[in-house]
Simulated assay, not measured.
Amino acid sequence: MAVEVKDTRFDEFLEFPCAFNFKVVGLAHDDLVPQVIATLQRHAEASDYSPSVKPSSKGTYHSVTVVVTVTSKAHIELLYTELGKLELVRYVM
């Protein structure tokens, strides 16, 4: 079950709009990266998503890092929440 991310302090440390790194750790599955990118594209405007994917040492998990332009604290919180809802995802950092 995904936890809704809210009441963060991102607005105290960032000036919007800005580039923001999302690191998503999920099961090593062919659908992980496409699902992450599709979720980001639904909620963030960008013409180019260039994910960096690193497998875990045992190959069970993949870490997907993507840079997205965010427009507000609420936008970051929405993206964290939506990425966390994906079935293959275990952590969003």
Rank of each mutant, 00 (worst) to 15 (best):
Tyr49Thr: 04
Glu4Cys: 07
Ser63Thr: 15
Gly26Leu: 12
Leu78Thr: 12
Ser57Arg: 11
Arg42Ile: 01
Val5Ile: 15
Lys85Ala: 15
Ser47Met: 04
Glu77Ala: 00
Gln35Trp: 10
Thr60Phe: 05
Ser63Trp: 15
Ser72Asp: 11
Leu32Cys: 07
Glu4Trp: 05
Ala44Val: 04
Leu78Ser: 08
His62Thr: 05
Val92His: 01
Val53Met: 10
Leu79Val: 05
Gln41Asn: 10
Val66His: 01
Val3Asp: 06
Ala28Phe: 06
His43Ile: 01
Val5Cys: 08
Lys6Pro: 05
Val67His: 06
Ser56Val: 06
Val36His: 03
Lys58Trp: 02
Val68Tyr: 01
Asp30Gln: 09
Phe16Gln: 02
Thr81Ala: 06
Val5Leu: 08
Ser52Ala: 02
Thr71His: 09
Phe20Leu: 07
Leu40Asn: 04
Gln41Arg: 15
Lys54Gly: 01
Ser72Arg: 15
Val68Gln: 00
Tyr91Ala: 11
Tyr49Met: 04
Leu83Gln: 03
Phe10Met: 09
Val64Phe: 09
Ala28Asn: 15
Phe16Pro: 01
Leu27Gln: 14
Arg42Ala: 08
Asp31Gln: 13
Phe16Ile: 02
Pro17Ala: 07
Gly26Arg: 13
Glu15Val: 15
Val70Trp: 09
Val68Asp: 00
Met1Cys: 03
Thr65Asp: 11
Ala19Glu: 15
Val53Asp: 09
Val89Arg: 10
Ile76Ala: 01
Glu12Trp: 08
Glu82His: 09
Lys54Glu: 14
Glu77Ser: 01
Leu40Tyr: 03
Thr65Pro: 03
Tyr61Gly: 06
Asp11Ala: 12
Thr69Ser: 03
Leu27Phe: 11
Gly84Thr: 01
Pro17Ser: 08
Ser57Lys: 15
Arg90Ile: 12
Leu83Glu: 02
Pro17Val: 13
Phe22Pro: 02
Val25His: 13
Val66Pro: 03
Lys73Ile: 03
Val36Tyr: 02
Arg9Asp: 14
Ala74Lys: 15
Met1Tyr: 04
Gly59Glu: 08
Asn21Met: 13
Leu79Gly: 02
Glu45Val: 13
Asp11Tyr: 08
Asp30Tyr: 06
Val89Thr: 08
Pro34Arg: 00
Ser52Arg: 05
Phe20Gly: 07
Glu45Asp: 14
Thr60Ala: 15
Pro55His: 15
Ala38Asn: 07
Tyr91Ile: 09
Leu88Val: 12
Phe10Pro: 10
Gly59Cys: 05
Leu32Thr: 09
Phe20Pro: 09
Tyr80Lys: 10
Gln41Thr: 08
Val3Gln: 10
Ser47Asp: 14
Pro34Cys: 00
Pro51Thr: 06
Val68Ser: 00
Pro17Arg: 14
Ser50Asn: 12
Tyr91Leu: 13
Val3Lys: 13
His43Met: 00
Ile76His: 00
Lys54Asp: 11
Phe13Ser: 13
Pro17Lys: 12
Ser52Tyr: 00
Val33Asp: 07
Arg42Met: 03
Thr69Leu: 02
Gly84Glu: 02
Ser47Asn: 11
Met1Gln: 03
Val70Asn: 06
Thr8Asp: 01
Asp7Asn: 15
Ala44Tyr: 04
Val68Glu: 00
Ser63Met: 11
Met93Arg: 13
Ala74Ile: 12
Thr39Met: 09
Phe10Glu: 05
Glu87Asp: 13
Phe22Thr: 03
Ser47Leu: 04
